[in-house]
Design a binder for these strands. Structure first.
Lengths: 200, 200
DNA sequence: TACTTTTGCTAACACTGTTAGGAAAACGAT
DNA sequence: ATCGTTTTCCTAACAGTGTTAGCAAAAGTA
């Protein structure tokens, strides 16, 4: 009797329609304008139904954050595959990260910064460790072939990530027109500095 | 007739008591828990009185942001004064910035990130230009005495700021215990890299 | 004292997240 | 097919939020 299976499937449909509607609202009106009632109206269910699928509003944002990291991770994998040279891999991933941030501005804002979910819970997102490992590897490779093969890869990863995130968020804040001229140059500066910092 | 003067002074008292109460609430319960009604209760006035002094809640947060930048600027001036060597000035200011962020975590969170006021309005804060000029000068000096005296100081300032902000916000997010060991090292790495990047 | 302005209140509007409790539909067993 | 049980889903409410309209009382001016 596939009845329960069908029910589970139907529940899954509602669940993903909640996420879809939520995301639609986020990109239309910004994450601050997202509300449970608006989601309920969009999916043509009453409000409490949403709470059958998610513990609270934050859980929905958290799920969107996870989706964001999944997309980012995919992009990074793609970028990495374009070369086997760790230096080129790092460079490509940095650009890829940068492009993700501006091409999926809404995702990036939900994922970081905005104070809401991420700040407290970012370290609980499993996708984050995928991200970490992804970037860590070419850094390790680069260190291994450098003049200082004992450098701390975790430290360098931290540097890499902070650097990129700082650049992006300062840029989004002062929003001097997204990924334009000047900031491309800063990014180049950053990457070159980071790589030469490892190579010694 | 100093009556109007007295009235203005009294209004000023209420205004600053609003800001004081707001700040108290922010450091006690976090900026997300700040509400107009709580402020009103704290200052023992009714809610609409607050709207006689501030256009809306955001204006209050914005004022706190300004205060934050004022404190930060003071700290940076102090740090800068400790030396006349631009390299040492930059280093000292970087550490000062870093310490401000963690010693005044609440301020830093109101000033950046949290999505609320700053994101849209940061470029309207006059204190920001003070900050910019403050950091810009030693960078210009360092560039002038470097092997590449034609480098763009604004670009380097951007790099400096992004770098620090990125490091701090990634740290606050993953909160592996504030300004401890590892991150001190990353900071050193950052500053050294930045300075050698200018000196060429 | 009479008039005007300022001051500060109550009460409401339109929202928000969240949940209790009950009606209706779907299911399983007799 | 009918009973009882479970699941599904809704209405309505609670406790908050930012914000504002309108009015009473106090303060200042003539």
């Amino acid at each position: 009797m596939g009845i329960t299976e069908r029910k589970i499937r139907q529940k899954e449909v509602v669940r993903s329609s909640i996420l879809k509607a939520a995301w639609q609202l986020v990109i239309e009106e910004g994450w601050q304008a997202l509300s449970i009632r608006k989601i309920a109206e969009a999916i043509e269910y009453s409000v409490p139904v949403i709470y059958d699928h998610f513990a609270n509003k934050e859980a929905i944002l958290l799920e969107l954050t996870k989706q964001g990291f999944q997309i980012l991770n995919n992009e990074l994998v793609k970028a990495k595959k374009r070369s086997t040279d760790p230096e080129k891999q790092i460079e490509a991933m940095a650009y890829s990260y940068w492009e993700f941030a501006f091409d999926h501005k809404a995702y990036y804002q939900v994922m970081y910064g905005l104070g809401m979910p991420s700040c407290e819970t970012v370290h609980q997102i499993s996708e984050l460790s995928t991200f970490t490992e992804l970037v860590m590897q070419p850094i390790k490779d680069l260190i291994a072939g450098s003049k200082t093969p004992n450098a701390d890869a975790f430290l360098k990863l931290h540097t890499f990530w902070s650097m990129l995130h700082g650049l992006i968020s300062i840029n989004m804040m002062t929003n001097d027109n997204s990924k334009e001229k000047l900031n491309q140059m800063v990014l180049q500066d950053f990457i070159a500095g980071f790589i030469s910092g490892i190579k010694g």
